[in-house]
Write a protein that binds this DNA or RNA. Structure first.
Length: 599
RNA sequence: GCCCCUGUAGCUCAAUGGACAGAGCAACUGCCUUCUAAGCAGGAGGUUGUGGGUUCGAAUCCCGCCAGGGGCGCCA
């Protein structure tokens, strides 16, 4: 937001260094890290180190300080900069608060929901996330995936990338067939009616079927025969599905739709609007088609004549001598495709049909090897976008009692957690906010509960595993979603009592350090958006949102707004509160967290 | 055997080459006749797993070791 001032000063520094034959290193600016101080800072360590390497006999820290002092003299007075200091090798430029405060607050209020939006980058990015399997239910691990992907999509979009959201549900395979078999044989027509009840019920069938089909210890010959007969039925159903048998296909479409209905409803709750749906079942045919092409191009090796599979010796084709990507299979010896084959076909479609420049895969970190292999093959295949494929891996979500297991039914369902979250918030609400109308309570409870859940996922770096604990995830105190939402609510509360917002105001008074800190932090928002998007890290925004809320809460306590007698100061502070509210709302929105006006 | 991730305050986590390594939770001390106490203020808590190296400067980069987790040709 202060590019102009920065340019002027950079020019002066360059001139000075050129005149004095000082080998200036790249100038890197950062905010002054001391609280309550507002300005920009750079250091001369790298420059001094350049001199040292050039043969000068100097002590780098002392020389850096010397340069900083000389530069300070050279710069002299600059409009908008109240003071300049050279300390410990750093050059600190303090802003004239009144002028900048007004500039920041005016810009935020003029831009509104667009404050912080980056200029269009003319690049199209596709974010693939929300890839649960059908015929199961949406658990807390899927939630981490979805919230991470959605936050990332919101960030890239806001940062200036054209963004396409894609979901890729796994709707085939033995697990799917197992559920269908169980349904068809034992539960036909007995499905519950509610969308979520029915979706979750499919998972129960899976658990029951798995137990039924698993070999047991000490089973009698009769039990063994029965189990094997069941398994044969299941395999037969799989064969029929493959052959396109109308009965099995209808069964598949119907049960699949039950799962998708539940998924769509959860995405609706999470305010996730998918642009593209890829289904694993629809990737199968295209996948088969590309295998021949890859063989012809000499990328894949066909070992079928020797009774083998179609494979890609990735390291060899890349000319690597040490093993890195190893070898993987494109086509089983029976001619069926694998996950890798489908991912390649999908990537081709992303590049050729959707013309994406960057492709981000939000997928469990355990599939890291698989995706690196896929990207390497795309490179061999000649797609220039292969270099801009990025795997945003995330650690898996486990439970205090161990890993989740769909087979054993040991999962924590997202819907259950959400319902519990809402219950807990409602309990707090009736205690703390009895004046909130009954009709609004449910909605607010949902916003707060989901906010707590989303933030608990986003405030942990994606490459860390998470042990899901209900009480921690649904905490409303401290570094949590509700804490940030509460800052928004309090800002709103002041504005509501003020009735109307002054059209303009000057900050031409002695600003409290809390005010300075708040304005300074708001001014950083656009940079934070860019950083989070460029690094594909929602955590950066999550950390910022907390810091902003924290600063606002402190300001709220220390600085009177409505109680201020001076009309000008009151007007300026009201506008600052409005700007803070807007910045918090924008930050929360990028994290897919609602910003309620009351709580 | 090879590869990837993690190791920071009692606990959960930030900080990816720069200024005194920061938050929250838990425990402790204050603050509601004052704009919402889901809050604020305060003190306490650290050999950044470990041993070397690079650098003016390392939690951060490089090498070794230790501990935990994950992955590695017909699963997804």
């Amino acid at each position: 937001m202060f590019d102009r001032e920065q340019q002027i000063i950079e020019t002066k520094i360059r001139e000075f260094c050129a005149q004095n034959r000082i080998p200036l290193a790249e100038l890197k600016w950062s905010p002054i890290p001391f609280s309550g101080e507002w300005g920009i800072s750079t250091s001369f360590f790298a420059t001094a180190a350049n001199e040292a390497r050039g043969g000068k006999k100097i002590q780098v820290p002392q020389r850096a300080q010397e340069i900083a002092e000389q530069v300070k003299v050279q710069i002299g007075r600059v409009d908008g900069i109240s003071r300049i200091e050279a300390v410990k090798g750093y050059l600190n430029l303090y802003f004239s608060t009144s002028e900048y405060a007004r500039r920041v607050v005016d810009e935020v209020l003029a831009s509104g929901a667009d404050f912080g939006r980056g200029a269009p980058k003319n690049e199209r990015v596709m974010v693939e996330y929300a890839q649960p399997n059908t015929h199961h239910s949406f658990h807390i691990g899927h939630f981490r995936n979805t919230i991470l992907g959605e936050a990332l999509a919101r960030l890239t979009e806001f940062a200036g990338f054209e963004t396409i959201r894609a979901s890729y549900p796994g709707d085939l395979g033995l697990g799917v067939i197992t559920v269908m078999w169980m349904y068809d044989k034992f539960y036909k027509g007995r499905e519950p009616q509610g969308i979520h009840e029915r979706g979750q019920w499919l998972m129960k069938l899976y658990v029951e079927a798995t137990a039924m089909l698993e070999p047991k210890e000490n089973e009698t010959p009769a039990e063994k025969a029965k189990r094997e007969a069941y398994d044969a039925e299941r395999r037969e159903m799989y064969r029929k599905w493959d052959a396109g048998d109308p009965y099995v296909r209808d069964l598949w479409r119907m049960t699949r739709e039950w799962s998708l209905e539940e998924l769509r409803d959860i995405l609706r709750i999470l305010d996730v609007k998918m642009d593209v749906w890829f289904f694993e079942s629809e990737a199968d045919e295209p996948a088969k088609e590309i295998v021949d092409e890859l063989i012809q191009r000499g990328i894949a090796d066909d070992e079928r004549p020797q009774g083998g599979a179609v494979i890609v010796k990735i390291d060899e084709k890349l000319g690597l001598t040490k093993e890195k990507y190893r070898t993987n299979i494109l086509l089983r010896s029976d001619g069926t495709t694998l996950y890798l084959t489908k991912d390649l076909a999908l990537a081709k479609q992303k590049f050729e049909k959707y013309h994406v420049d960057r492709s981000i895969y939000v997928v469990d970190v355990r599939q890291s090897m698989h995706l690196q292999q896929a990207f390497a093959i795309l490179k061999l295949w000649g797609f220039p976008q292969a270099d801009k494929c990025y795997h945003l891996g995330y650690g898996f979500v486990s439970l205090p009692e161990g890993a989740m297991s769909a087979r054993r039914g040991r999962v924590v369902l997202f819907k259950d957690v959400m319902d519990e979250a809402i219950r807990r918030v409602l309990a707090v609400e009736s205690e703390k906010g009895p004046e909130v109308p009954e009709a609004d309570r449910k909605k607010i409870a949902e916003q707060i509960g989901l906010g707590a859940l989303a933030y608990s996922m986003l405030s942990v770096d994606n490459n860390r595993d998470i042990v899901f604990e209900m009480d921690a995830a649904l905490s409303f105190d401290g570094r949590t979603g509700p804490y940030i939402q509460n800052a928004h609510v309090r800002a709103n509360s002041i504005l509501k009592k003020a009735n109307n917002l002054p059209k303009q105001a000057d900050f031409d008074y002695e600003l409290d350090s809390h005010e300075v800190q708040l304005i300074e932090l708001i001014s950083r928002f656009p940079d934070v958006v860019q950083q989070a998007a460029n690094e594909y890290r929602p955590l950066v925004m999550a950390a910022y949102a907390y810091e902003l809320a924290n600063t606002f809460h402190s300001f709220y306590h220390a600085v009177p707004v409505l109680q201020t007698d001076n009309e000008n100061i009151r007007a300026a502070r009201l506008r600052l509160v409005a700007a803070a509210k807007q910045a918090i709302a924008n930050a929360l929105r990028l994290l897919d967290i609602q910003a309620p006006d009351v709580m």
